[in-house]
């Protein structure tokens, strides 16, 4: 197996206030280039916390006891702020679980995507118009049929599903090598879920994108992921663990 592009090694986080409470305990995960790793776990098992940690954000309320996040072998938690900022977005991006709060309500969705593109120079020096074109193309890539309307909308004017796809478009618009998608399908209907799965396959095939796909049930993850990490109360558990079985059977239903 090739060296992982992104890996977590023994991540252990405790609450700052109560150092005895573990939010993540010795969690490891490794993502090889062009692969999809599924992270599955019940509500409150620490999936979102893990996603943030993978991007080098330890929530303020928590404190890292041990562990590293490795980007091509380099510890990003030890990187300086400037390098980390360049790395985020350009190499790894995160699509949020709560798409409704991940957009700034003051700007249109299009403006925020354009801002991201310009911040990374992903419009190849073509000016604002070029960035807008690119934003539109990514909105339609994310499965939005009328990108021109969506682009001009304020976040609160979009349905939950549209927002979630717009969020995905924003995460992809800088063409990162790794996408961490936190429950990207939670507010989509079944057909859209299937389309999104198809999109992830396509992105992996065509752009060589590696994905950490987070979900609370096994349903779609099982069909897509090359590897599974099952989280239960902040720990990685084996597939025959009772908690893991409960998740599995929920997926069968």
């Amino acid at each position: 197996m090739s060296a992982p592009i992104l890996a977590a090694r023994g991540i252990t986080l405790t609450l700052r206030e109560k150092p005895g409470t573990f939010i993540l305990e010795d969690v490891s995960l490794s993502l090889a280039r062009g692969k999809i790793v599924g992270v599955v776990g019940g509500s409150g098992s620490g999936k979102t916390t893990l996603a943030c940690t993978l991007l080098g954000f330890i929530p303020d309320a928590m404190c890292r006891q041990r562990g590293q996040v490795l980007w091509q072998g380099q510890d990003i938690l030890a990187m300086d702020a400037l390098a980390l900022r360049r790395w985020r977005g350009a190499c790894v991006s995160l699509s949020f679980q709560e798409a409704s709060s991940a957009f700034d309500p003051v700007f249109t969705v299009g403006d925020q995507i354009v801002e991201t593109i310009m911040a990374h120079g992903a419009h190849e020096g073509g000016g604002r118009a070029r960035a807008r074109e690119r934003a539109l193309s990514f909105l339609s890539l994310a499965g939005i049929d009328d990108p021109r309307r969506v682009e001009r909308c304020y976040p609160h004017e979009l349905s939950g599903g549209l927002r979630q796809r717009a969020m995905l478009a924003m995460a992809l618009c800088t063409t990162p090598s790794v996408l961490v998608a936190d429950e990207p399908t939670s507010s989509l209907d079944v057909t859209l879920q299937a389309r999104l799965m198809e999109l992830f396959r396509k992105l992996r095939r065509e752009l060589d994108l590696s994905i950490v796909l987070i979900a609370h049930d096994l349903g779609m993850v099982r069909r897509l992921a090359d590897e599974l990490v099952i989280l239960s109360r902040g720990r990685v558990v084996a597939p025959d663990h009772p908690d893991a079985r409960a998740l599995m059977s929920a997926g069968e239903m």
Partner: peptide, 10 residues
């Protein structure tokens, strides 16, 4: 959205 902006490297 502030965290989102930070994850996007602003």
């Amino acid at each position: 959205y502030v965290l989102a902006a930070r994850t996007m490297g602003l």
